[in-house]
Design a protein around this nucleic acid. Structure first.
Length: 505
RNA sequence: GGCGACGUGGCCGAGGGGUUAGGCAAGGGUCUGCAAAACCCUGUACAGCGGUUCGAGUCCGCUCGUCGCCUCCA
């Protein structure tokens, strides 16, 4: 094998691809901003979570240790959370009042429900678990303490309505987003209603006084709730320390969220908060921005669920593959065609995997004849991933490997099969697109696993198989047609008939 | 208006001064009652206009176009 390649990622701070250099050699400690759990997460959210997942997998494939923290935001994220004064409405409260929110007794219940659903979708897409998944509501004490310290250090001040971070007190504000000029920043917040007590329009809320808020805690400033930005500063520090190696999130978080995090954290510690900042570009769907109003808005379950439950029967790993088929930093067009192609690939991966397993068990003698070529392809895939997560190139190498195995599967001897099996395992560890790493019980139900008509379909398939064996092809074809009506496709294989649900894309 | 990204064959998407990306789709073939799968073969490309260069899809400039953030949103 080649020596381990250098891990390079684009850094928003420097606008350049740079080597990832952990503070502690060989141990990457990073934080990725998680979602606000006021609804089901959609595929766009997951594209960003997948970036973090791929950073994790690539680092581990390079032999590094990792400490990966990603949060759940369950309070404080407002509908107008720009650099302003927390004058918007809390997303959680708004969701509770919506039609979907009627089923929940209170915001806490709603947060719990969507957090659980997030984890189910997370597992469905074969994302690895973080070392810690902190929640904002479980770190209120730390947030209050941080706000107190910021006041002590002269970086924050109190008004009648809340506590604000003083942007003027932090020199580096605007460096990440490039919004450096004060007038630019003032421009950005021009339309928001201001707390008249604010000293500078750029100042943002650390704590909002609000004894009527649905989620409130007692603080030195009375009842209220924390500002959105402070939670990530506090949780990253709690689990990763004052200085972290890398911080990731969606591109929309560059400003104001991450800009504010840097200001708070660095004002608090006097140290560099994160060396590397990685942002995932928004995906588009069929060439358009994903939006509920245009009908191209998809959650994981919209695509992966059974047809009976309103889903489209897409294989979960096919969805994963489709979502990583474009590089995280480039404009990415998520299309049905890509999803179909991904489904084909995942299906073929599985077929070849079982052929490999069969060959390994059959035990024909001889030397390993594919190992070297597969190793080279793995090295190519890993090098591509290390090069700013070039997933298209990595996937191309993997497909080439499966093609190689597919072409010679009839002649695979035991030694080659064992080598192939090891290769597949490594590829899967790197990209997670061949085999699921999570048990079924921890995933959201998908079409393959829970077909309500399975018994009936099995019966029809068996009947067709019998008709075929009796050479009654007219009857067999009639049954094929009947199954097709049910949306089922039958394949005759050397191991007997197999069937699958045609996806309803 | 400020900041930024991108324009590659029917589609998705790598590459990035001289030698095939890859996939999907399409067409042809082998195989199998049918169908599917698998495997083999085939075609079409770098938005436009200038410039640098022995040579540009690849560098520079301009033009056109698309998109993102700054408002909800990863």
């Amino acid at each position: 094998m080649d020596p381990a390649p250098e891990f390079r990622l684009y850094n928003t701070l420097s606008n350049a691809v740079e080597p990832v250099v952990p503070r502690e050699a060989g141990h990457l400690r990073f934080y990725s901003c998680g979602p606000t759990v006021y609804s089901y997460a959609h595929i766009g959210n997951f594209r960003s979570f997948l970036t973090a997942d791929l950073i994790l997998r690539t680092a581990e494939a390079l032999g590094w240790r990792t400490t990966y923290v990603t949060n759940v935001t369950d309070v404080g994220h407002l509908t107008e959370d720009d650099a302003a004064d927390a004058s918007g409405e809390d997303r959680m409260a708004k969701a509770l009042r919506s039609k979907e929110g009627e089923r929940f007794a209170n915001v806490w219940d709603l947060a719990r429900y969507y957090t659980n659903e997030l984890l189910a979708d997370w597992n469905t897409l074969n994302l690895r678990d973080p070392a810690v998944r902190p929640r904002a509501t479980e770190h209120i004490r730390e947030q209050i303490a941080a706000v107190e310290q910021l006041i002590e250090k002269g970086h924050a001040y109190e008004t009648e309505q809340g506590i604000y971070f003083s942007v003027a007190s932090f020199e580096g504000y605007g460096r990440l987003s490039g919004n450096e000029a004060a007038e630019q920043l003032e421009q950005l917040v021009r339309d928001t209603v201001s707390d008249p007590g604010k000293r500078d329009p750029r100042d943002f809320a650390l704590w909002k006084k609000d004894p009527k808020h649905l989620m409130q805690w007692y603080s030195p400033w009375g009842w209220g709730f924390p500002g959105w930005h402070i939670e990530c500063s506090v949780m990253a520090r709690a689990y990763l320390g004052d200085e972290i190696d890398l911080h990731a999130g969606g591109e929309d978080l560059i400003f104001p969220h991450h800009e504010c995090e840097i200001a708070q954290s660095e004002s608090l510690t006097g140290k560099t908060f994160s060396k590397h900042w990685v942002h995932t570009r928004f995906l588009q769907v069929e060439g358009e921005k994903m939006a509920k109003r245009t009908g191209n808005f998809f959650t994981v379950r919209d695509l992966v669920g059974t047809a009976a439950s309103g889903g489209r029967g897409v294989d979960p790993l096919a969805l994963r593959l489709a979502l990583i088929s474009g590089q995280y930093r480039k404009p990415f067009n998520f299309t049905k065609e890509t999803l179909k192609a991904s489904a084909k690939h995942v299906e073929r991966f599985r077929e070849i995997l079982s052929a490999v397993d069969a060959a390994a068990a059959a035990g024909a003698g001889g030397a390993d004849r594919v190992g070297e070529r597969l190793d080279a392809l793995y090295d190519r895939a890993l090098a591509a991933m290390a090069d700013d997560l070039n997933t298209p190139e990595a996937i191309a190498a993997v497909i080439e490997g499966f093609k190689l195995l597919g072409g010679m599967r009839a002649q695979l001897n035991a030694a080659s099969a064992a080598g192939a099996r090891a290769w597949i395992a490594r590829v899967n560890a790197l990209l997670g697109i061949v085999e699921h790493e999570k048990p079924l019980a921890e995933r959201a139900a998908d079409a393959k696993d829970a077909d309500p008509d399975a018994v009936r379909i099995d019966a029809l398939v068996a009947e067709r198989y019998a008709a075929r064996a009796a050479r009654d092809f007219a009857r067999a074809d009639a049954l094929r047609a009947e199954l097709a009506e049910l949306g089922v496709e039958v394949m005759d294989t050397p191991d007997g008939p197999k069937w699958k649900r045609a996806s309803t894309l």
